[in-house]
Amino acid sequence: MSRRYRQWVKEYQHQAWSLARYLLKDAQEAEDAVQDAFVKLWNNQDKIDPERIKPWLMKVTRNGCLDRLRRRRENVEFNESHMAGESSGPMQDVAANELGGWLKRAIEGLKEPYRSLVVLRDVQQHSYEEVAGMLELSLAQVKVYLHRARKELREQLAEVRP
């Protein structure tokens, strides 16, 4: 195994998995999606600019997750409405007194690309430029979409906070 590949696994597996986990809401499927992305990384490592490995990997991980979501669209729609039902019960969440858990579910309930944006920028704290590269959006688009996503989350937070 090449040393640099091992280094990539060490550095990026957690971020890739976290993103996949938020997008797919399923740990097992998130693992599969991240594995697919790393297989692509292994097979294309000579073609990728070494400086762009992380954005490339995150982009491929996200695209893989979106493909999986498309394939199970009907199921996902059902699940999302089911989860939205859960997260729209703020009292239940507040009663559980777990704001972090509530926020995670709220993020999972966001539509794309808002969800990826919030995860990449606010949870994983990548720079705006990196996020733009990962999502293939302009810097201005990233800012506008992120601002909408945050506003939506803020409004939801205002409902659950006393």
Binding site: M1, S2, Y5, R6, V9, Q13, H14, Q15, A16, W17, S18, R21, A27, E31, V34, Q35, F38, V39, W42, L99, G100, L103, K104, V118, D122, V123, Q124, R150, L153, R154, L157, R161
Partner: peptide, 28 residues
């Protein structure tokens, strides 16, 4: 907005399970 930011900051980046690391290292 500040409150949201605070809650966001408290969310740790989830660590990938050990099983994933094993799968990734087996890829080559």
């Amino acid at each position: 907005a500040y409150q949201l930011q605070q809650v966001m900051d408290d969310i740790p980046v989830e660590r990938a399970p050990a099983s994933l690391g094993k799968r990734l290292r087996a890829i080559p």
